[in-house]
Write a protein that binds this DNA or RNA. Structure first.
Length: 891
RNA sequence: GGGUGGUUAGCUCAGUUGGUUAGAGCGCCGGUCUCACAUACCGGAGGUCACAGGUUCGAAUCCUGUACCGCCCACCA
């Protein structure tokens, strides 16, 4: 036996980084365009450049790595393309916070200095996350790392913008958009998230100009009284008898007394509020539509940072609208003050508490202020239609399928995309205006003069939405608009793995851009996994303090443990629930499994000779029942795990392999083989463990590689990460062995149960008598049965003598175990009676079923036959139990 | 309001097209430091599969409804 000196416990921290380095140095992760293999491409959802690894990445990237490693082993030329996103608002916010700590704002620095500062920050701290991905084993092609704000990708962004401009898909819209008064920028619909909020509904009297109403006023309901200064009309539903008489009359704004008309508009819901709706066209998207229909003035009554005040002359309609005492107040302060003033004037009818959805900025959580402004929009309909068609033609599918409805509904109801942001960090919008002739155009290169009149040039100050670069990721990363070799070889890709939260932000838009610019969907499968949550099902986040730092997990339990939890812990598309207060319960199973593998490896290494015979060289006749069984199990696992992986049921594949290696190989085969090591056992053991390591490599790459390296027969330089996925071998599944060894397992378990039940001292040898019509199977494994059940001898057939315990097996065999010393007859009687009664009850049910005409005639023949057999076996068991009870003299 | 997912053991979850006695991990109880592993081994307890109907020879699985939890979308002021 070869020497081995491995510690009894696997220490992940001592091997992981060296293994990772070996993979990288060997170039395993690098994709080659000249490879004859079929490509398989995944582009990473680029993390924010300033991000640090959290469990969301842990889940997302582990799944991608498991998929890409599986495909790599299956012989595809895999490309997993990594990179980062410049993350406009998010990154700008981080740096602005730093500045705030220095008592400065970005305006103090000025645009150029600020952008430089952000760039500096990014280059200093940036891409930390990519290194962190290495610690969890991600097999990205680092030679192709990309960044959304790099010159290459910026070029793609600009090309896309100009092309769409030329195609008339980009336009300037003057309308109410979502405005974040803290970030001081517009947001897209998707970036302004709804949050249920409990607020108030204020009922306010607007006095009628000519006092002709019942009480000389009409009453409106609003959640935002402070906006009344921007009201330019009151509308009622033309069908509503309450409002109809007032149409055409005028009312006065409370506090300021400005006169506004009362108009009819279909958009008013007769069921809600008072039937009278105040219209603030510049601060409400819906009111804006009303304002457009009725050609109302649209005065802005708040500044960009949401303080009350008249803004601009152009929109202001009737001139000054915000009174002195309100001017300069924050919108929420103003609300309080307005309510007080209304009360003082007797114009506040009532206040009701009211649940409603308020939009908040997805980056800073501020309540978004709807605000009339000029922004750039993309016409989405022409892009959405091909994306729908492609889906309907089956060019892209979603896993799990249920997301398809969501995708379709969003595309069907698509709205134009606001792509301009009033930020400094990002791709500056390439729209230029002539200072002389006011000509406006988009340009691929920065112009120095107006192409029409030669006048001076100014560029639009805004930048593009961060997602305007992300949506090009599947091809901008491959060099588009250049027709690069990479682009030709690796586009379109295959699988996109991400969270459903960014289905609209990102996934749907990538499909649209891919179709529009390259006429092909960028990937054929979208795998949407769940969200990482805590045990209370709250999203895991830093702000909630319920986070788990993946690097802590790696340090404490190893990267494989983290990966194991992420893969085996979720079924397809479901959320990953983790307990941040009990890391041990959450991650120990993975660590323990790695340790189990380690120890199987230690055992095998202590047994195997230098030269292990190939499994193919072992004659079938020299195989024992246990050999045949484990080989059959091995084959079954290859088949099932391969299929599960192909269907993205990664958890199932992982668990199948776990069960094979731990449950079958270690707990049974290894134990049974201990007594009879020889060429056949060596070959079987080496083969099965090798298969197990290969199958598990995508899930737990480190421990499997570490062990695989140590096994005999390795060629120098060979790596498991680059090894082949096991395939169906010539040795077919062995149903006979499955069944026979299953009986052996049951017998051993039965005897062990008796041993525990009667509290037989552990080292006491027992003898057992087995009566069975399947004697052959048991006879073939007498040696291991004897050893594993702790028997002195096992006689198959013959009659039992003396007192002892009794058990009945599923196939009707019964086993009698002679017990040393006296047995507790009462206890054995109780045991047997319980068994008998339970069996009797089941038998009664089964017999009823079998005598049921309908069952016999309508159920499939094999089901009926199986039930018949079962009935017979149970009958035999009951008889045997009764005999035994009689023999023991039980009551 | 529309869409969508869930409810199975104390906890976190599996359960393939309806068909043996519904499973796993953790936890729990009892026993073992057995020469690969106590991060282990052996044995065990624990579930009227949310509820009510229905279809079927047969339902955790299919249908209808109810309750509770969740997510996405939506201009109810």
């Amino acid at each position: 036996m070869p020497e081995f000196s491995l510690p009894p416990q696997y220490d992940a921290s001592t091997v992981e980084s060296a293994l990772y380095k070996r993979w990288v140095d060997a170039g395993i992760f690098t994709a080659h365009v000249d490879s004859p293999k079929k490509p398989y491409v995944i582009v990473i959802p680029p993390p924010n450049v300033t991000a640090v690894l959290h469990m969301g990445h842990g889940l997302n990237d582990t799944l991608q790595d498991a998929i890409i490693r599986f495909e790599r082993m299956r012989g595809r030329e895999t490309l997993w393309l990594p990179g980062t996103d410049h993350a406009g608002i998010a990154t700008q916010n981080v740096v602005e916070k730093q500045l705030a700590a220095e008592g400065k704002t970005r305006f103090d620095l000025g645009r150029e200095a600020f952008v430089q500062r952000v760039a500096g920050f990014v280059s200093e701290t940036g891409a930390v996350i990519l290194d962190q991905l290495k610690t969890i084993g991600c097999s990205c092609d680092w030679s192709r790392t990309r960044y959304t704000l790099s010159p290459e990708l910026s070029r793609a962004v600009r090309e896309v913008f100009v092309r769409m401009w030329e195609e008339g898909l980009i336009y300037r819209g003057h309308r109410v958009i979502h405005w974040c008064p803290r970030c001081l920028t517009a947001l897209s619909d998707e970036e302004a998230e709804f949050h249920e909020t409990s607020g108030n509904l204020y009922y306010i009297h607007y006095p009628l100009t000519h006092g002709s109403g019942q009480d000389g006023h009409v009453t409106v309901a609003t959640t935002r009284p402070e906006t009344l200064f921007g009201d330019t009309a009151i509308v009622v539903n033309p069908e509503d008898p309450r409002g109809r008489p007032f149409v055409g009359k005028t009312a006065k704004l409370p506090i300021t007394g400005l006169e506004i008309p009362i108009l009819a508009d279909d958009s008013v819901d007769k069921e809600f509020g008072t039937g009278f709706v105040k219209v603030t066209p510049a601060h409400d998207a819906n009111d804006f539509e009303v304002g457009m229909r009725h050609k109302l003035a649209m005065p802005l009554i708040m500044t960009e940072d949401a303080k009350m005040g008249d803004v601009g002359k152009r929109e202001s309609g009737n001139g000054k609208r915000v009174p002195k005492e309100i001017e300069g107040l924050d919108r929420f302060e103003a609300r309080k003050k307005v309510v007080k003033m209304l009360e003082a004037q007797g114009l506040l009818a009532k206040v009701e508490s009211h649940q409603h959805a308020v939009r908040r900025c997805y980056r800073c959580d501020s309540i978004v202020e709807p605000r009339l402004s000029d922004q750039w929009f993309v016409k989405m309909k022409p892009l959405a239609e091909p994306a729908l068609a492609a889906f309907r033609k089956g060019e892209v599918r979603f896993v799990p399928e249920r997301w398809e409805t969501t995708y379709v509904q969003w595309l069907e109801g698509i709205r134009d995309w606001n792509i301009s942001r009033q930020l400094w960090w990002g791709h500056r919008i390439p729209v230029f205006t002539c200072t002389k002739c006011k000509h406006e155009w988009a340009d691929r290169v920065d112009p120095t003069s107006c192409p029409t009149c030669g006048g001076g040039v100014t560029q639009d100050p805004d930048v593009l939405d961060t997602w305007f670069s992300s949506w090009l990721w599947p091809f901008s990363t491959l060099g588009w608009p250049e027709q690069t070799v990479d682009l030709k070889h690796f586009y379109p890709g295959h699988t996109l793995v991400t969270a459903p939260e960014i289905l609209f932000f990102w996934v749907a838009r990538m499909i649209m851009s891919g179709l529009h610019f390259l006429k092909q969907v960028p990937f054929n499968t979208v795998y949407l996994h769940g969200t990482v949550r805590d045990t209370k099902h709250r999203k895991m986040s830093k702000s909630l303090g319920n986070g788990i730092d993946p690097l802590d997990v790696v340090r404490l339990y190893g990267a494989d443990a983290l990966r194991w939890t992420a893969i085996a812990g979720v079924s397809i598309g479901s959320d990953l629930i983790l307990d941040h207060e009990d890391l041990e319960a959450t991650f120990a199973p993975g660590r323990n499994f790695a340790n189990k593998l380690w120890n199987i490896g230690r055992f095998i290494l202590s047994q195997l000779p230098e030269q292990v015979p190939a499994i193919e060289s072992i004659g079938r006749k020299t195989l024992t029942l246990a050999d045949r069984w484990i080989l059959s199990r091995c084959q079954a696992t290859i088949d099932a795990a391969t299929k599960a992986n192909e269907q993205f049921r990664l958890d199932e594949a992982a668990k199948l392999c776990y069960e094979f290696v731990w449950g079958d190989l270690a707990d049974w085969y290894l134990e049974s083989a201990k007594g009879r090591m020889g060429p056949a056992a060596y070959a079987v053991l080496a083969h099965c463990f090798d298969v197990g390591l290969r199958l598990l490599h995508p899930d737990v790459p480190f421990i499997t590689e570490e062990l695989w390296q140590k096994l005999p027969g390795r060629k120098p330089g060979a790596l498991l990460a680059g090894a082949a996925w096991p395939v169906a071998s010539a040795k077919a599944r062995d149903a006979e062995a499955d069944l026979a060894f299953g009986r052996v397992q049951e017998l051993i378990t039965a005897i062990r149960s008796i041993r525990a039940e009667y509290r037989i001292a552990p080292k006491t040898k027992l003898s057992a008598v087995l009566n069975s019509k399947h004697a052959d199977a048991y006879a073939a494994e007498t040696e291991s049965i004897t050893r594993l059940a702790g028997l002195e001898n096992l006689s198959i057939g013959g009659s039992a003598a003396g007192v002892g315990a009794h058990a009945v097996l599923k196939d009707g065999s019964d086993v009698f175990v002679a017990l040393t010393g006296s047995i507790d007859v009462a206890q054995e009687c109780k045991r047997l009676t319980t068994d008998r009664d339970r069996l009797d009850k089941q038998l009664a049910g089964l017999s009823a079923k079998l005598s049921n005409e309908s069952f016999v005639s309508r159920a499939p023949a094999d089901v009926v036959a199986r039930e018949r057999e079962k009935e017979q076996a149970w009958r035999a068991q009951v008889r045997a139990l009764n005999d035994k009870l009689k023999a023991l003299g039980c009551a």
